[in-house]
């Protein structure tokens, strides 16, 4: 019969909505470390640095590799190295603290529990990031795990790795441009105007797509989707409504401002070349 002091086998629940966000630099660094790993090593592991955002998301911003030795049942981690590099990193950016550790390879392996235990002593509830450099499933799988304790009453029995959602949207990488980051060789960096051109082309393509979609819906070729419709109407209504003369005035004023600046900078340049001629050509008689 159930009694009052019944002990329940349970997982200690975590803060429910734990998730992680990863900076592209971390992926780059892990890949670089993996490429440069020692001959006999199967995988590389290392420390993740970052911070916990106010909403509880773990923001993984930096990483460094830690040399280790792995045999079937034990893992030797170079703890001195780990601490040295940690203090070096903290000198540069004291705000970045240990948030977990990474390993290459698909998913969690046996040795992982031991390493995770080590990192649990460094920081409470570390995140374990795995990056599948072998493309085991034919796709790039990057996963984040945390450990959950299985306990019987107050007694801990075991721990389990549980996957947590990982945010792989990389705003920083978009800023640099995927064109540069995803190819093995880029001959030159895009200039300002080229970037502008590409952006405009993309914008035009988007507008064309929207037109086409709206036309299709109106003609009855495509089933209307209310959410898309709402988005479109929101976008259109976000364009400020103003009378054509007012708008013309606004655009023309801005254009005049820019022209004035251009004019000024041209004058400055002329002045420079003149000054240079006068200064260096001035001979002492």
């Amino acid at each position: 019969m159930a009694s009052a002091d019944q002990t329940v086998l349970q997982f200690v629940p975590l803060s429910t909505s734990l998730s992680a966000k990863v900076h592209p630099l971390v992926i780059f660094n892990i890949c670089d470390c993996f490429v440069r790993r020692p001959d006999q090593a199967e995988r590389v592991i290392g420390t993740l640095l970052g911070s916990i955002l106010p909403d509880g998301t773990v923001d993984i911003r930096n990483s460094y590799v830690v040399p280790h030795n792995e045999s079937s049942d034990q893992v030797a981690l170079d703890i001195d190295y780990h601490h040295n590099l940690l203090s070096s990193h903290q000198k540069v950016n004291p705000k970045e603290v240990i948030v977990g550790w990474f390993s290459t390879g698909f998913g969690v392996t046996g040795g992982s529990a031991l390493i995770h235990e080590f990192y649990s002593r460094e920081v409470s509830n570390p995140v374990h990031l795995t990056v599948d450099t072998g493309f085991t499933n034919g796709e790039a799988s990057i996963k984040a795990f945390v450990s959950i304790n299985l306990s019987l009453g107050d007694q801990q029995l075991a721990a389990q790795f549980q996957e947590i959602p990982l945010d792989l949207r990389m705003v920083e990488a978009e800023r640099v441009g995927f064109e540069i980051l995803k190819t093995t060789a880029v001959d030159k960096l895009p200039s300002d105007m080229e970037g502008m051109e590409a952006t405009m082309e993309r914008l035009l393509a988007l507008i064309d797509d929207t037109y086409k979609y709206v036309d299709d819906v109106v003609e009855g070729r495509v089933a209307p989707d209310n959410t898309v419709g709402r988005f479109i109407s929101e976008t259109v209504s976000s364009v400020p409504k103003m009378s054509p003369p007012a708008f013309d005035k606004l655009v023309n004023d801005s254009l005049q401002d820019q022209l004035l600046l251009l004019y000024l900078s041209s004058i400055t340049r002329t002045q420079l070349s003149l000054a240079e001629k006068l200064n260096t050509a001035a001979q002492i008689l």
């Binding site: 790039a140 990057i142 949207r169 995927f178 540069i180 980051l181 995803k182 190819t183 093995t184 960096l189």
Partner: peptide
């Protein structure tokens, strides 16, 4: 300046590139 990436990184980035046709740099530019 030339930019180079290891094949591994290039593979990861190609996988991870978002499908969205607009990127942050587009917003910034506009």
């Amino acid at each position: 300046i030339k930019v180079s990436n290891s094949a591994l990184v290039s593979a990861f980035m190609t996988e991870l590139e978002a499908d969205s046709p607009v990127t942050q740099s587009d917003y910034d530019r506009l």
